[in-house]
Design a binder for these strands. Structure first.
Length: 808
RNA sequence: GCGGAUGUGGUGGAAUUGGUAGACACGCGUGCCUUAGGAGCACGUGCCCUCGGGCGUGAAGGUUCAAGUCCUUUCAUCCGUACCA
């Protein structure tokens, strides 16, 4: 008998698949389209890890399942190849980023092939390819035209190790997302995309997305919409007014002092002569601190009195003005009215510096604590006795009528900072002209090619290595032809990955970024599979797609219909796989060891629900291999033996149809672990039934069904056995098996018998048995009688076709 | 703090609407077989038990004929976020 040998059959089918081109997605086909993809990888030198293998197992299983259902499936693949790792590697070794990237991609691609993926490679794209970034740059110029790209000098996150600025989304608890260094603030002139202009649409459309709650709320919190009021406070020492933002204008009578962020433009100029030096020192040290240092101060707030006073517009009280770094420069107006009786932070600050505390809200439920919630107003003039929540708008109108305030909405999200002072990225297509300022490079001059350089290292002077390429930098102004200089910063890699899903729909187009009819046919993505990037990437893609919609380039606003968010594959001990711990499992090793790609894929999907984290298990992979081997053996026995007697065809057929129904439903719900369990059960049952004898037709059909049902997860063994059974080399064209309910009904049915909800036995009754008869039979069971001795039956509950519960 | 999850055998996990808790698999145990392989096959495996049964889904209450599932309170773990006024 032929033995199951994945290392023999898998390469065979991988070659057939690649050469046949059968996974090519057809533009504008009659069939329903289905666009599935995962977040394209950065092609690192390390190649594929278990996480990639898991992600591709998910995508490929979905793709094959949908293809079997007759869908015109697009499963494309690309490379997010700009970025720091290639560049840092280049600095270390001198190998140009482009060269290393090319090798890495070739390696990655080969590994994906060895996984048995059904990718349409004709759509392959690569963000560092000039034919790709030409359009990334084109999009930049379009955003610039629409006023959605702008330059601004301000304090920004700066990573001292990577020597570049970072977007808010790339700073994680005060540290650089790449290298983990503590970031500092640095004032620089930078390019931004106005994502805040789209804060409301991005928030509103969230409701319509079939995405996990976790991601939706993460985005909602990140956007952080707050409704409140801006209120102006007169100051005694100058003509300047201080404008604050507050979500609680109803507590204005309790505002006893004002606090400015150290970065606030007035914090130095307002200071009195006596206070000037201490304010200056405080501001200087606050700005110099890393974000970590600022946050570590959360127990002990610090600040300094400016010597100046403001006036509370509600009651005319004098309010000392302080500068403190617990007020953030970048949020709201960078200044707050402190209401120490009803805000914990203001309270802590007031306690420390002995500032006045005036209670204006009463609330019977907790008289001891600081009342931060709603209540009834006191010490609030004409508003006394009113509920805070009721009177909030009224107070804003009152302030507005006196010209000192107005309703206002503020967001936590900031504009997207996209300049990077590095080399390996798409150059920002701008030319700075002494006469015309920043001029976008015309479409006909795109792409602005990234020049080849010798020295990739950033020097930390706030300039990209490109600034040293004087031949490249010096150019002429597109408007006037006079000498001008190129922008030397490159774009954040996230810009490149914010539109690749659209490029897949028209990947070779040399005339435009995509043809609207193709993008509108394929996109939005039906299933987008990923396990990282809750906010950054998924927010940026949404932003750009909204913009493209408004530009008339797309009929839809949202790029991704359903987001399939998967968990992590951890090491066997439940900790994160890491090189330093030496517990990394290499998926290619698993294939090489002889388990094969089918076992690897099936195993990773069997570990648990895909949206949860799971741990690798070396015993588990062997168990899956055993399962595949049992499928193989079952088929070989059939092919070699000659069973003809028919005894149990009905049982085989019922099992087969029951399994089709269950497994199909599990696949549809992306519950792959239970789909595989259902297939294992099927195989186990077939092993039991085979000793009964069966007819050739029934058994063959049962085995062919097995091949079809297992083909999305384990495509190689399915294709091979299908060929052995049918002599056909394309299981893909066989469609998906269907079930017929008529095979699922049987003459008798098992009814559970309970007494007071406790199981006392089961009975077999005719499917169409009379309810009274069933109750009767149940009550007469020996085991039921035994438990009924000392009680009389109060009533009998009968759930048709399920159970009888006798209540005593 | 706030937000999002998750708690079920020795382990990973099943159980769409409340209706036989523990499917399937790992591990473990017993037996069979052999061309000794990474074997294969069959059976068993929640806990306790005086072998009648009793107890069991983080904990405590509640609703119900019936609760892993619904309600209330509470504890633990993980993830995200972080002075957002």
């Amino acid at each position: 008998m032929r033995r199951y040998n994945p290392s023999e059959i898998e390469p065979k089918w991988q070659d057939i698949w690649q050469e046949s081109g059968r996974y090519r997605a057809v533009d504008n086909s009659e069939a329903d389209k289905f666009y599935v993809s995962c977040m394209f990888p950065y092609p690192s030198g390390a190649g594929m890890h278990t996480g990639h293998a898991f992600e591709h197992a998910i995508v490929d299983t979905i793709a094959r399942f949908q293809r079997a259902h007759g869908k015109n499936v697009m499963n494309p693949m690309g490379w997010d190849s700009f970025g720091l790792p290639a560049e840092n590697y280049a600095i270390k070794t001198g190998v140009a980023p482009g060269v290393a990237t090319k090798q890495n991609i070739a390696n990655f691609k080969n590994q994906l092939k060895r996984m048995g993926t059904s990718i349409d490679w004709s759509r392959e794209l690569n963000t560092s390819d000039p034919e790709y970034y030409r359009w990334t740059q084109w999009i930049f110029t379009k955003l610039y035209e629409r006023g959605l790209a702008y330059q601004n000098e301000s304090l920004q996150w700066w990573c001292p190790v990577d020597k570049t600025v970072l977007a808010n989304e790339q700073v994680e608890s005060g540290k650089c997302w790449r290298c983990g260094s503590e970031v500092i603030k640095k004032s620089m002139k930078q390019w931004f995309f106005s994502i805040t202009d789209y804060a409301d649409p991005l928030l509103e459309e969230l409701d319509n997305l079939d995405w996990p709650n976790k991601i939706k709320t993460a985005q909602e919190n990140w956007i952080g919409r707050s409704e409140g009021a801006s209120i102006d406070f007169e100051t005694d020492s100058s003509e300047d007014k201080i404008t604050v933002f507050s979500t609680r204008p109803d507590t204005i009578f309790g505002a006893t002092f004002l606090v400015l962020a150290p970065e606030h433009p007035l914090s130095l100029s307002l200071a009195s002569r006596e206070a000037a030096d201490s304010v200056k020192d405080y501001v200087a040290s606050a700005v110099k601190k890393t974000e970590i240092e600022r946050q570590s101060d959360d127990k002990e707030k610090t600040g300094v009195f400016t010597g100046a006073y403001g006036i509370n517009p509600a009651n005319g009280e004098k309010m000392p003005i302080w500068v403190a770094d617990y007020v953030l420069g970048g949020y709201g107006t960078g200044a707050v009215m402190a209401v120490p009786a009803h805000d914990e932070r203001d309270n802590a600050f007031a306690q420390k510096y002995e500032l006045p505390i005036v209670a204006v809200v009463e609330n019977s439920s907790d008289s001891q604590a600081i009342i931060t919630g709603e209540g009834s107003l006191v010490n609030s003039g004409a508003f006394n006795g009113r509920q805070t929540s009721d009177v909030r708008e009224e107070i804003v109108s009152w302030l507005e009528s006196r010209g000192v305030g107005k309703a206002e909405v503020t967001y936590k999200m900031r504009d997207w900072l996209i300049s990077r002072q590095r080399y390996w990225g798409a150059p920002i297509p701008i030319i700075h002209c002494p006469e015309h300022g920043a001029v976008a490079v015309p479409e006909s001059d795109l792409p602005v090619m990234l020049p080849e350089v010798e020295d990739f290292a950033p020097k930390g002077d706030g300039m990209s290595p490109l600034a040293r390429q004087t031949d490249w930098v010096n150019t002429t102004c597109p408007s006037c032809g006079q000498p001008a200089k190129r922008e030397t910063d490159v774009m954040d890699g996230y810009a490149c990955s914010s539109w690749y899903l659209l490029r897949f729909t028209d990947p070779q187009d040399a005339e435009q970024a995509w043809k609207p009819e193709l993008a509108n046919y394929w996109a939005p993505v039906d299933y987008y599979v990923g396990g990282d990037h809750a906010v950054a990437h998924l927010l940026y893609v949404r932003f750009w797609t909204h913009v493209f919609h408004d530009m008339g380039l797309l009929d839809f606003k949202e790029p991704v219909k359903k987001l399939v968010y998967h968990g992590l594959i951890q090491a066997e001990d439940g900790t994160k796989m890491s090189k330093s711990k030496g517990n990394v499992v290499d998926p290619l090793d698993i294939i090489d060891q002889g388990y094969g790609a089918d076992a690897l894929r099936t195993f990773e999907l069997f570990l648990g629900p895909i949206n949860e984290n799971s741990s690798w298990s070396s015993g588990g992979i062997a168990g899956i291999y055993r399962f595949l081997n049992r499928i193989w053996t079952l088929s070989q026995e059939y092919l070699e033996a000659d069973y003809v007697q028919s005894k149990n065809d009905a049982a085989v057929r019922q099992l087969q149809h029951k399994t089709i129904k269950k497994v199909t439903d599990n696949y549809r719900r992306l519950s792959f672990n239970t789909a595989i369990a259902g297939l294992m059960e099927y195989v186990n049952e077939l092993y039991k039934l085979k000793t009964d004898g069966f007819s050739d037709a029934a058994w063959r059909e049962a085995l062919e069904t097995l091949c079809l049902l297992v083909s999305p997860v384990a495509p190689h063994i399915a294709a091979e056995l299908w060929e052995q059974l049918r002599g056909e080399t394309s299981i893909e064209s066989a469609g998906w098996p269907t079930w017929d309910d008529k095979f699922l009904v049987s003459d008798t049915i098992t009814i559970v018998v309970q007494i007071n909800g406790k199981l006392r036995g089961t009975i077999e009754v005719a499917t169409d048995a009379d309810p009274d008869d069933v109750k009767q039979i149940a009550a007469e069971l020996d085991n039921v009688q035994r438990h009924l001795t000392d009680g009389e039956i109060k009533k009998i509950i009968y759930v048709p076709k399920k159970l009888v519960n006798i209540v005593v």
